Simulated scan of single mutants.
Amino acid sequence: MFAYLRTLVRRRVVVNLASGRAFRAILWARRGRLLVLRDVVMHEPGAGPVAVDGETVIEVDRVEFIQVLTGTDEG
């Protein structure tokens, strides 16, 4: 399960959580059941985007879906 994550490493993505929170970031690494994100902007329902310093680690079980951004979506 989640074997497709291997193809997303080092790509710009939007990681959407079941809670409604989303992270626009570079999926830097997958460490077992964890995703490591860099260059993160967090989006919460009802709030503006917030830049996050450092790396963000998310459990794969919390992920609802992942959107892969293309060259025109990255800006």
Rank of each mutant, 00 (worst) to 15 (best):
E59Y: 15
Q67Y: 05
M42A: 06
W28A: 09
D39A: 07
V40A: 03
L8Q: 07
A18F: 13
V9G: 04
V36G: 03
V41A: 04
G48Q: 11
Q67V: 14
E74W: 13
E74M: 15
E44V: 08
I58M: 07
I66A: 09
A25S: 13
L5H: 03
V14D: 01
W28I: 01
E44K: 12
F23M: 04
V9Y: 07
I26W: 15
T7P: 00
V57D: 09
G20P: 02
D73M: 09
L8N: 08
V68G: 00
V36L: 11
L35C: 04
V15Y: 04
V15S: 04
M42W: 03
E55L: 12
L5S: 01
V60W: 13
M42F: 02
T56S: 10
G71M: 05
A22F: 13
V40D: 01
Q67P: 01
F23A: 01
I58K: 02
G75H: 14
V52M: 06
V40P: 00
R10M: 07
L5V: 03
S19C: 12
V68Q: 04
P49H: 10
G48S: 11
F65Y: 12
A29M: 06
G46D: 14
A22M: 14
R38S: 05
D53I: 10
R31K: 14
E44Y: 05
I26G: 08
R21W: 11
G48F: 12
M1H: 09
V68Y: 02
A51M: 15
R38M: 08
V60Y: 12
V36W: 07
V15Q: 06
R38A: 05
A25D: 08
R24A: 13
D39G: 07
V63A: 00
I66W: 05
F23T: 00
T56V: 05
R62K: 15
P49D: 14
G32M: 13
G75Y: 11
V36N: 03
